[in-house]
Nucleic acid binder design. Structure first.
Length: 514
RNA sequence: GGGCCGGUAGCUCAAUCGGUAGAGCACUGCCCUUUUAAGGCAGGGGUUCUGGGUUCGAGUCCCAGCCGGCUCACCA
């Protein structure tokens, strides 16, 4: 920053910083030996009466960021913020001395301050520290956003999350809840005998999901590596190795669009359980989510974006049933179960739906799928356009088409479908799970089919992973596996309408600076 | 990447049909020893996102660009 760019407000604060130095005060001291955090003060003393406090004369040392200043001649008040709460201090010249009172008068909103004094209640009853000593801790050279509208500009909120956290208290609560959620998931899985592991984020092949990867380069080995799109294939290698229950909570990276439900890097919980199938995983998921909701919210029910969601019941629908149930009557007669497996019938349904959707106000989702795509892909595309947004209460969508599920085991009675489910809550896909395919010969066929799609230009088609086939060839037990999108779950538990509100630093285009 | 909407003081927002850029908070000075959106008096602060254009005159109209939001495409 050149001096000509420094605003008058900053210059004023620099002058005050110099004035503080002129008082003989250290500007950036090393430490402050506090006796209580601000939340501890409130916890322990909020219930004390004025008389009790006067009798006890509790001496405390606290610290916080100055968020309000109300000087009154030779005395004054301030509010310190810290730990998500505020505590008032009262400073009077005859209690702190001339030098510390001069310091008080030089404070700006945003400065960091330590205070030693005793607790009392003001005339209006507010628990307050009667200061006997002030310790300047750091200067805020830049002015804070406004005190009661807070910071509303979403771009600044995401780019300068530190400001957002300072002035918008509910933001802190969101990330505290997110942390409680992850802790609850971890606790639950550990109590079920799962081992937490970490697998590569940089992979020579980007496998385990149908998604476009980021590419990076390792100089010493002179090889390109992919940032992982999923840990799946590594976790199942561990199942082969005899780690019968494993989980990982970590970042995935997908080089695709950004939306209210998508950030290029996002946190995924994946877990695998030997000797289990997708039905077991459904039951486990219900228990896991109820446990998490109880731990984070203290309830199975919560509000989310105008809906009252309940984890008491998890509906089960096949993908085809979901299409039929949510088919808009105005688009013509609903498809039949049988018609949703035949390419020509599917094309007819897609045309009918798109014609209907194009006439709707706004711009509703259209089914967008290549005309030469496999029937299973068309069914999935139709499902997403027709049904997804209606799946507000928890719903397991089961029986996915074979063609879109290269790593899942076929249903014994219908080889066109696999033992797979996705869990939808709030119209969002929250979880994806299946009975893991463990036949190495069949797995090779599936990979080869994906290779065909890739050659036809589908950049998200799955790559062939020879070592994974080798691992399966040593024998993998029947296994249930699942991935849960932590960010989306955090959205549900924090009543957030965009994924950016539950990611501290969501990806934005970099700021242009001269 | 497409469509729609937006960008004005540090922050939150106004500005009529194209006619002198405003308010609240924040800030500066003075007064004030229990206030809390403290109060009283007096002040300062603007490249209206950037660059072009139209016009006697542009925050306002036109074009291009930058950044963001919503949405579609893509995807979880």
């Amino acid at each position: 920053m050149s001096s000509s760019e420094i605003s008058e407000l900053v210059r004023q604060r620099q002058r005050k910083l110099q004035a503080i130095a002129d008082l003989g005060v250290e500007l950036y001291p090393r430490r402050w030996d506090f006796s209580h955090t601000l939340p501890q003060i409130l916890e322990r003393y909020a219930s004390r009466t004025a008389e009790q406090l006067e009798a006890e004369k509790v001496t405390v040392r606290v610290a916080g960021r100055v968020m309000a200043l109300r000087p009154h001649g030779k005395a004054g008040f301030a509010h310190l913020a810290g730990g998500g709460v505020r505590l008032q201090i009262y400073v009077r010249v005859d209690a702190v001395g001339e030098r510390d009172f001069q310091l008080y008068k030089l404070l700006d909103l945003g400065d960091l301050l330590g205070v030693e004094g005793y607790l009392f209640r003001t005339r209006t009853g507010e628990l307050t520290v009667h200061a006997e000593r002030l310790q300047f801790l750091a200067k805020s050279l830049l002015p804070l956003p406004e005190k009661w509208h807070g910071l509303a500009d979403v771009e600044i909120r995401y780019r300068q999350r530190y400001l957002d956290l300072m002035v918008n208290p509910e933001v802190r609560e969101v990330f505290e809840r997110r942390a409680r959620l992850i802790r609850a998931l971890r606790q639950f899985l550990e109590s079920e005998g799962y081992l937490e592991v970490e697998t590569p984020m940089m992979q020579p092949l980007a496998g385990g999901a149908m998604a476009r990867p980021f590419v990076t380069h390792h100089n010493a080995l002179n090889i390109d590596l992919y940032l992982r799109v999923a840990p799946e294939l590594y976790l199942k290698r561990l199942i082969v190795g005899g780690l019968d229950r494993v989980f990982e909570i970590n970042r995935n990276f997908r080089n695709e669009g950004i939306s209210k439900q998508h950030n290029p890097e996002f946190t995924m919980l994946e877990f695998y359980q030997a000797y289990a199938d997708y039905q077991d995983m459904m039951r486990l998921t219900e228990r896991l989510l109820r446990h998490a909701a109880q731990a984070v919210l203290g309830s199975q029910e919560f509000d989310w974006c105008g809906h009252r969601l309940s984890l008491a019941e998890f509906q089960r629908l096949t993908m085809r049933e979901a299409v039929i149930r949510y088919w808009p009557p105005a688009a013509g007669p609903a498809p039949s179960l049988g018609s949703l497996t035949q390419a020509s019938e599917l094309d007819r349904h897609i045309r009918a739906f798109n014609e209907w959707a194009a006439k709707q106000p706004g711009s509703p989702s259209l089914v967008n799928v290549r005309s030469d795509a496999a029937p299973g892909m068309k069914l999935q595309a139709l499902f997403e356009a027709v049904a997804e947004e209606h799946l507000i209460q928890p719903t397991f969508v089961i029986d996915f088409p074979l063609e879109v599920s290269p790593l899942a085991k076929q249903k014994p009675d219908d080889p066109n479908f696999v033992e797979r489910f996705e869990l939808y809550i709030g119209g969002m896909e929250i979880a994806n799970a299946f009975s893991e395919l463990n036949d190495p010969v069949e797995q090779r066929d599936r990979f080869e089919y994906q290779q065909l799609l890739r050659q036809k230009g589908d950049l998200s088609a799955h790559a062939i992973d020879e070592d994974y086939i080798r691992a399966l060839s040593y024998g993998m037990p029947p296994t249930g596996g699942e991935g849960i999108g932590i960010d989306r779950l955090a959205m549900l538990f924090t009543n957030s309408r965009t994924i950016r509100d539950v990611i501290l630093f969501p990806l934005l285009r970099p700021e242009k600076r001269e």
